[in-house]
Amino acid sequence: MLPHQRQYAQAKFRSMVEDSTGNEFEKLFHRLMELSHPSYMPIRTHGNIGDLGGDGLCARCRTLYACYAPDTLRVSEVRDKFLGDLASAMTQRPEQFDAFVFVHNDQRGIHPVVSGLIAQQQQALTSITLEQMGPRKLWYEALELNLGKMEALLQESIPIHEVRYGVGMADIEPLLLHLAETRPQHAPAEEIPLPTPFKADYNGLSIRAQQVLQRARPYIYQVGQYYQGIISHTEQDEVAAGFAAYYRQMRKEYGDQPDEILWQMQRYVLGQEHPRWERADAADVVVTFFFEQCDIFEIPPLDWRPVTSGGEPG
């Protein structure tokens, strides 16, 4: 899949998730999971036994999914849905799953009531893992699809001609604005070395690519400060998961071109339009942060050293 096709798919899928509710959202979720997991089984309600606490079951990964995307969100209904599905599943199909996932379409994140219920029930239930899956994680699932499956998910053909998008990874738009507005205009007098000096060499990044990371390195502390200051404690982990998923996809497509992978990671953040310089610099900081956090690119073995021109380790 070409980069502009993937960005088209992301925008389209995000809109589909946001606009669908009730049965339509559940159908979209089933279609996604059936395309990405061969062992996934949609569960329909039957007679007086209902759905036994789940809307879908992934047999291979032993995960049970419960969908909730109402037209109008009511806290009491969210609570009853979550607790009711969980209790039914634990009673009627306890041997079938190891993880219970509450699936929703709230673009702003999981409702605070549900997050509290998940944390509360996780303490009480040590035999299973409780998770939530919102629009961001749904896209990470879709990200692994090839062009044919992506078109099946969207139920339309993806344009072949190149389309330019000014917004890339919408989830980090506030972070880009924060960095662009607060980054100091003058870099420190002394360069700050990369914390993993062999990682860039191990991945075969060119001197030019390493300079991009080097220039951004003094400012990555601002990314950490940003994530520490926001309310959602899972935000950084979920964004990191997105970077890791996109990196894996880029490595499949450009495995022998590390500079191309780095550039594609920048496009993942920005979109394809040529950005203003402060926005481009902010994107470099974000990519460098996740490079340092080891969410993207490969980690060299502890005893690995680059080979010098004379054929000996440096």
Results as ranks from 00 to 15, higher is better:
E191Q: 13
A124R: 14
N48D: 15
R74N: 12
R44L: 11
A152Y: 00
H233G: 01
C61G: 00
P301F: 06
A240W: 03
R305Y: 10
Q236E: 15
S232V: 05
P174M: 09
Q10T: 03
E273F: 00
H178A: 09
K12S: 12
S157V: 12
V239H: 09
I160A: 11
P188A: 09
V269G: 03
A66H: 05
V223N: 07
T129W: 01
G134A: 05
G22Y: 04
N48P: 00
Q236I: 06
P135A: 07
S206F: 06
A11T: 08
V287D: 08
V286C: 05
W263Y: 11
A99S: 14
T45A: 12
P70V: 09
Q249V: 14
S20F: 10
L176G: 03
P42Y: 05
G84Y: 09
E162L: 03
K137C: 01
Q228F: 07
Q214C: 05
I110V: 14
H46P: 00
L125T: 04
V75N: 06
D85L: 02
P188F: 08
E95S: 06
A9H: 01
L153K: 04
Y202H: 12
P42W: 05
Q92W: 07
Q96C: 02
R62H: 10
Y221N: 12
G116N: 14
P300D: 13
D85E: 11
L2G: 03
Q96M: 07
E278Q: 15
Q92F: 08
V239C: 04
N105W: 04
L86F: 06
Q257P: 00
L176T: 03
G204A: 10
Q120E: 15
D201L: 11
C294R: 14
M265I: 01
R60G: 00
L130P: 03
A280Q: 15
K81E: 13
R136C: 02
P94Y: 04
G56D: 13
F29P: 00
S76C: 03
Q264A: 12
Y140C: 01
L147P: 00
F102S: 02
K12V: 08
G50A: 10
T308Y: 00
C58G: 05
I118W: 02
G271T: 01
G255I: 09
G50W: 09
I296G: 02
Q107R: 10
T91E: 12
V163I: 13
A282W: 05
G50C: 07
Y219V: 08
S36V: 08
